[in-house]
Nucleic acid binder design. Structure first.
Lengths: 201, 201
DNA sequence: CGACGAGTTGAAGGCAGTCAATGCTTGTGG
DNA sequence: CCACAAGCATTGACTGCCTTCAACTCGTCG
C-alpha cells in the first residue's frame, strides 16, 4: 500500500549502497549530508529536545531519510539503525527529485507518522506488539511470520513511552503467553511474531 | 524555521479560500478530493484504525493536507478542524506541484510528526502544555502570549493519550497555578498561554 | 420542560513508574 | 589468566498517579 514490496530488492542502476549495523548512527541533526532512501531495515529518528534526544519518528524500507537537507542544507533529525540497514542516495539536488518521487515520500511520511503515534497508544502489550509488527512489515513483506532482531530495550522504551523495566516485563509476559517467541543470543535477541496475531487488532 | 511566518496572511493570486469552523470535518479517509494548504488554523488528522478513528497527526498553518490524493486518488486520513480553519487548493495535479513546494511539504511534515509525538510524552501537564504551545505557534507567530480556543476535551484527550477526566483536571490545575488563563464562554473556552513558559522546557 | 452533550468533581482500584538488588555478558588492565 | 568494572537485562516490592465508574452541573436545542 504505502510502498512497493519489491523496492528494497530491486537495485537502482549505478547507485552505491551504504550499510549500517544495529545501534549505529546514520547521521546527526545539524550535519550536512545527502538525502537517502532505505533499501532495507528500520531506522529511528530523533529530534534534539529539551531533555536530550527525543523520539521523532520511524522510517522503514522504501522511506526517504533527510529530504530536508535539499531544502535546509542540514539534517533536522538524527537517525539511528534499529536493525541492520542498507541505504542508497536518493536525490542529490532539488532538481533531481521528480514530483512522483516527492509525492511518494510525502505520502509514506504521513503513513509512518501514524505508525509512530500508534506506538504510544494503548497498553504496553499493544504498544510493543505494534512496534514489532511495524518492524516486521519493514523487514518481511507479505510473510505471515516475521523474525525481528529486538532493538535495545532502552530504544523500545523511548519509542513506546514506557520504562525499560515495563518493556522487559511485557516482553517476558508476551513470551510466556505464546504471543511471541524469543530466540538468539541475549545480546542480539530475536523475536518471531505472527503479523496476523489478534494482538494487533 | 519550518514555515514562513507570513504564509497565512499573504493571499495566493486568484486562489479560492474555503472556511471551516471548529469541530467540523474537512474530509474523510477514502474520499476523493483536492490537496489543500492551510492558510490558518489547526487541523487534526485521523486514520481509521481497528477501534474507530485514531489520532494520526497534526497540521498547522502552512502545512499541506491530502497530498496523497495526487498519488492515490483518495484521502488516506480524515481531517477535523480543531480551530476555525482557512484552506486553499494546493496543487491540482502532480505536475502542478514544484519540487520546492513538495520539499517544503515534506520537511514540515517531519516537523509535525515530531510535534505530534511530543503530545504523548511526559506528564499530563507537559502534554497539554505542549499541545497548546503547538497550537499557539500555528496561530500567533512570533508573539509571546498566544490566545487559543480550546478544542473539545475529547479531542485533547485522544491526541494526548489521556482521558477526558484527566484533561479536565489538568487544565483546572494549570489554571489555578497560573500557568494558564481561561476565558471565553464555556462552549468555546479560550486559553491564554505564555509560549516561553517554563512548562514547555 | 426534558433530553442530550460537554464538562466537572469525587472515590476507589489497578497498573505502570520508581527504587533497588541480582545476574549475565563484554571489555579492560594487572 | 584472572579480577574487576561497566553496560544491559531481569525481577521484586512499594508508591503514586491515572483510569475507571459514578453523580452532578451547565448550556443548548428539540
Amino acid at each position: 500500500m504505502e510502498f512497493d514490496p519489491d523496492l528494497e530488492i530491486r537495485p537502482a542502476s549505478g547507485s552505491r549502497v551504504t550499510t549500517f549495523t544495529r545501534g549505529e548512527d546514520l547521521f546527526h541533526a545539524g550535519e550536512a549530508g545527502l538525502a537517502w532512501r532505505i533499501r532495507s531495515g528500520v531506522v529511528r529518528l530523533d529530534r534534539l529536545g529539551e531533555t536530550g534526544r527525543e523520539f521523532g519518528g520511524l522510517a522503514l524500507a522504501g522511506d526517504v531519510l533527510g529530504a530536508e537537507t535539499l531544502l535546509l542544507g542540514q539534517y533536522s533529525f538524527s537517525a539511528r539503525a534499529l536493525t541492520d540497514v542498507f541505504i542508497e542516495p536518493w536525490a542529490s539536488s532539488p532538481e533531481a527529485a521528480t514530483p512522483h518521487m516527492l509525492l511518494q515520500a510525502l505520502s509514506s511520511s504521513k503513513e509512518r507518522q501514524a505508525d509512530s503515534l500508534a506506538l504510544r497508544s494503548g497498553t504496553p502489550e499493544h504498544r510493543i506488539s505494534q512496534l514489532l509488527a511495524v518492524m516486521g512489515r519493514g523487514l518481511a513483506h507479505g510473510q505471515r511470520i516475521a523474525r525481528v532482531v529486538l532493538p535495545q530495550l532502552r530504544d523500545i522504551a523511548e519509542m513506546t513511552g514506557l520504562t525499560v523495566e515495563t518493556v522487559s516485563r511485557t516482553i517476558s509476559r508476551l513470551n510466556r503467553s505464546g504471543s511471541l517467541e524469543l530466540g538468539g543470543t541475549l545480546r542480539a535477541k530475536q523475536v518471531s511474531i505472527d503479523l496476523q496475531s489478534s494482538l494487533l487488532t
